[in-house]
Design a protein around this nucleic acid. Structure first.
Lengths: 105, 105
DNA sequence: ATTATTGTTGGATAGTTGTCAAACAATGAG
DNA sequence: CTCATTGTTTGACAACTATCCAACAATAAT
């Protein structure tokens, strides 16, 4: 079980988080993780309409921004939201983005 | 007194708002507007470290995303946050971003 | 009318980004 | 060992972006 490099909680930058969330594909990934919890990269990227290498690129963007964390377990890699860290550093931000992402009208 | 084109409230898109806020210069402009209220472009762009044409480019980005609105009055152009529209469409989002922008540590 | 102020637009440029395809690496299964 | 699965990396490419400078447009002041 290995963790991949990601910023420490106190090093998470607001503009980088916003940038990470400002892409429709990445936002959808985040919504899925928020709804379904930890999941493999394949599950997270399913039916996303992008090539798996593109999805992988987005996982890295999210991880480097501090939005998700990934841990390798055998052949699978599980990714999950850094809810606690994000809520501690930017209270309410993730929640408002998630609830905003459900606004249809 | 002319208003410049900007999206209707219901047409404001989350990812575009996030993208607009995900730039340090634009975020600083938004923080200023939130703190000081309506102001001229010159005042908003003062001590920002970028050329006035660059600031103008950022005003357009913010306006087209639905974050600010600008109205021309004579020789001056006043810009202001669309707080009401943003709060109605994405409750809590702007507030959490603004309070997050004050997080130093 | 001439000049100064305010802000936008267009061009140029360097850097970034989202995407796919192909190749690769690591691991588990037969 | 050989093969299938999972995900990353690299290269290529087109699109976009942030920036500056110079020129322009609109308006107000002298």
């Amino acid at each position: 079980m290995r963790l991949l490099p990601h910023p420490a909680k106190e090093d998470i930058q607001l503009t980088e988080v916003l940038r990470a969330l400002a892409d429709p594909v990445r936002l959808e990934i985040v919504v899925r993780l928020a709804t379904l919890g930890e999941m493999t990269c394949t599950a997270a990227g399913d039916h996303l309409g992008v090539h798996k290498s593109t999805a992988s690129h987005h996982y890295r963007a999210l991880r480097e921004a501090g939005v998700i964390v990934s841990k390798q377990e055998g052949r699978l890699k599980y990714i999950s939201l850094r809810r606690g860290d994000l809520d501690a550093r930017f209270p309410g931000l993730l929640d408002s983005v998630l609830s905003a992402s459900h606004a249809t009208t």
